[in-house]
Simulated scan of single mutants.
Amino acid sequence: MNKQQKQLLTLLESTFNPQDDIHFLAIAETQIQVYDKERPVHQVRVALTFKEGDTVNPYYDGTDLFVTMDENSIQFTLEKDWADGPPAVEGSPIELALGWVSELTPPFFVSPHAKEAAERKAITSANRSQPAPPTDPNPWF
């Protein structure tokens, strides 16, 4: 994680998690346009859920938001496009969070919960895709 990504994570934490009841699952960002060379706009894809103590809710919400970044600061922008509407993803199982965030670009932050859930999903999917072992019908007759 580079310096700007750390600053972005700090901004997200301070804005959306002041009471420490939010758990960020995965975060990705990519530059989408430049208004001027000093303040490019970045799309940020965030998957998050609620937590109580060490327990993390098994469902996540996700949204895209926008920030401007330069070497010294990060701030939200284009709020009318993202702040008042519903999340892009609402109430989806956390094993899908990493895949959804990765559709934008590879995430720079992935929580251990999101990684474990994605790995469990991959193992389950791999096991389902293998053909079932042949069964002997003779004991049934």
Rank of each mutant, 00 (worst) to 15 (best):
S102T: 15
Q43Y: 02
K80F: 07
F66W: 09
L78S: 02
V89K: 14
T49V: 05
G91T: 09
V110Q: 09
R45G: 01
V89Q: 12
P106L: 14
V44M: 05
K115W: 05
F108Y: 14
A47E: 05
E79K: 14
D81M: 13
V44A: 03
I74M: 03
Q75S: 10
D61K: 13
T49F: 03
Y60D: 00
F109V: 14
P86R: 12
E95W: 07
Y60C: 03
V67L: 04
V56T: 04
L65W: 02
N57D: 10
A83Y: 05
A88W: 04
D64A: 15
V34M: 08
G53I: 13
L104E: 03
D84P: 03
I32Q: 02
L78K: 05
V44P: 02
Q43P: 02
F109L: 12
E38L: 09
E90K: 09
S73R: 13
D64E: 14
A114D: 01
R39P: 00
S92R: 14
D64I: 15
A117Y: 10
Q75E: 05
P93I: 15
R39M: 11
K51W: 13
A83S: 09
F50A: 11
P112I: 10
F50E: 12
D54I: 12
S102L: 08
D54F: 10
G91C: 07
V89E: 10
A83P: 01
V89H: 11
F76V: 04
P86D: 15
G85H: 08
V67R: 01
P40K: 10
V41S: 01
S73E: 14
L78W: 04
V67S: 00
S102K: 07
G91L: 08
E52D: 03
N72A: 15
Y35N: 01
V34L: 06
T63N: 04
A83F: 08
L65R: 00
G62C: 10
A114R: 05
W82P: 02
